[in-house]
Simulated scan of single mutants.
Amino acid sequence: MEKKNYAARAAIYAMGLVILAAGITMNIKTGLGVSTIISVPFAISSIWDVNFSLVTFATYALFVVIEMIIKGSDRTVIDWLQIPFSIVFSLLLNMFSKLLDFNFGHLWQNTLYLAAAIICTGAGMSMMIAMKFVPNPADGLAQAIGKAFGKNMGFGKNILDASCVAIACVIGLLFDKRIIGIGIGTVAAMLLVGRCVAVFDHFFKDRMKSAAGLAE
């Protein structure tokens, strides 16, 4: 085992966090549909004109609470660090929402932007997961759900994705008589982000872990 390089580990994790927030924000800006995990806060903020970042934080905090309930006595102090993570992540979403204020007029432009969003989301997730630090609350909950069913994290993520989209649709139809934020971009993110994570892992995971002293 290599000696752990905590500075490199923190830097890669932080970079992944920033790239993830940028990717999710870009997904929203395409106008083709938001990513699955933030579909609920997006619907709520759109209907009631509540700050999107604030609602996202509340949603992520709820994810952490549900995760803690599922994990029971298996929960650790590290798991609770997902709460401050949610605060930082919400602030990053708010920042990128102002910085990435693009309005493309053609479908092909938005499609390319969506592709870039999915790549960034997958790359950010890969970097964060590889560092084995504080998990994204959505990933933490997905892992807990998968374990509760005796399955892997991928199974848990499918359950969480489907649940978020269904809840977002119900909220939109009940309170605004339309489906809000769900579109081809949502489906594309659901199908392709995992593939992007796998590709990024294939080319860069070992290098990142080696740089952080996590390689065995």
Rank of each mutant, 00 (worst) to 15 (best):
N94K: 12
M15S: 09
V77G: 08
N158D: 00
K4Q: 13
M190Q: 14
S46I: 00
A58K: 02
I69T: 09
K147D: 11
L32Q: 06
G124M: 15
V197H: 03
V40E: 04
M128K: 01
A148T: 10
D101L: 08
I78G: 02
M125E: 01
C164W: 07
G23Y: 02
M15G: 15
N152S: 15
K209H: 00
L191G: 03
A7G: 03
I19H: 05
R178D: 04
S163A: 15
S86T: 08
S39R: 09
M68Q: 14
L114T: 01
I145A: 02
D139I: 04
V199Y: 10
K98D: 12
Q82V: 03
G105L: 08
A162I: 15
G146E: 08
M95V: 15
V199I: 15
N110L: 11
A198P: 02
L93I: 11
V170S: 01
I167K: 13
A61H: 08
V193H: 12
G23S: 09
A115M: 13
N51P: 01
D101G: 05
S163M: 14
W108M: 11
L192K: 02
K3N: 10
L107E: 03
N27D: 07
S126N: 12
V65F: 11
V64S: 10
W80D: 00
V134P: 05
V64P: 13
L214V: 14
S39W: 04
L191W: 06
L92M: 15
Q109K: 03
S90P: 03
C196H: 09
V77M: 12
I37W: 15
L114N: 06
F204E: 05
A58P: 01
E2M: 10
N5C: 12
F203G: 09
V193N: 06
I44Y: 11
G194F: 09
A211T: 03
D176K: 14
A43W: 00
S163Q: 03
A61F: 10
A148R: 15
T56W: 04
A212I: 00
K4E: 15
L32E: 08
S90T: 04
P137S: 03
L114R: 10
A14V: 12
P135V: 00
I159Q: 11
G146S: 02
G146C: 03
V165M: 13
I69P: 05
G16S: 06
I184R: 02
I83W: 01
L174M: 15
Q82Y: 03
I167H: 11
D161A: 13
I78P: 00
A130G: 05
Q143R: 14
A215I: 08
I19E: 07
P41R: 05
A142D: 10
I83G: 07
M125Q: 07
I19Y: 12
F200Q: 07
K147A: 13
A168L: 08
V165Q: 10
A116L: 15
